[in-house]
Design a protein around this nucleic acid. Structure first.
Lengths: 72, 72
DNA sequence: CTTTATAGTGCATTATACGGCTCTTTTTTA
DNA sequence: TAAAAAAGAGCCGTATAATGCACTATAAAG
């Protein structure tokens, strides 16, 4: 997943959960400003920040091999 | 994947490829110091740094739902 | 044990992520 | 439309990630 895809995934997940940026910020413990920056594609969050955000939305960061059949 | 697992995955991937930290640092464009810190569990890399590292090792950062059958 | 390669750490500097506050822009709702 | 809610952006101080250099620690090889 490229950067933009990650953002898109997070944004979509948030919208599916019908949670506002403000609420997600509060629940995750990440600053609202940071979340706004990130979702608008201007940030470069730390791994910790990313994990806080996705964790509270029931997701997790993972690594996988590229170009390997059976990975999609 | 928790933080430690991510580190472990990266470290193991690097070792499978028989690449030293110095080489990976050079290939990925990430500072050697940064890589050392990260692998030794002392860092909190930015998403960009993480992507640089895993990308050059044929991996990618992804997000997935937790606790969902069919995700493993 | 000595040499050599690789990994980990202390210190210092620079770059930048984080976050609050405020204001503007966009979207949603009545 | 107008009002309200949500998202985005500028300013900006603080915290910390990124990095190089030099040194130490560990491990492998002779």
């Amino acid at each position: 997943m490229h950067y933009k895809e990650l953002i898109k995934t997070i944004k979509e997940r948030r919208e599916v959960l019908r949670v506002t940026q403000a609420t997600l910020a509060e629940l995750s413990g990440v600053g609202l400003r940071t979340l706004k920056q990130f979702e608008s594609g201007k940030g470069n969050p730390t791994l910790l920040t990313l994990q806080k955000l996705v964790d509270v939305m029931g997701m997790e960061v993972c690594l996988k091999l590229k170009n390997v059949s059976g990975n999609k």
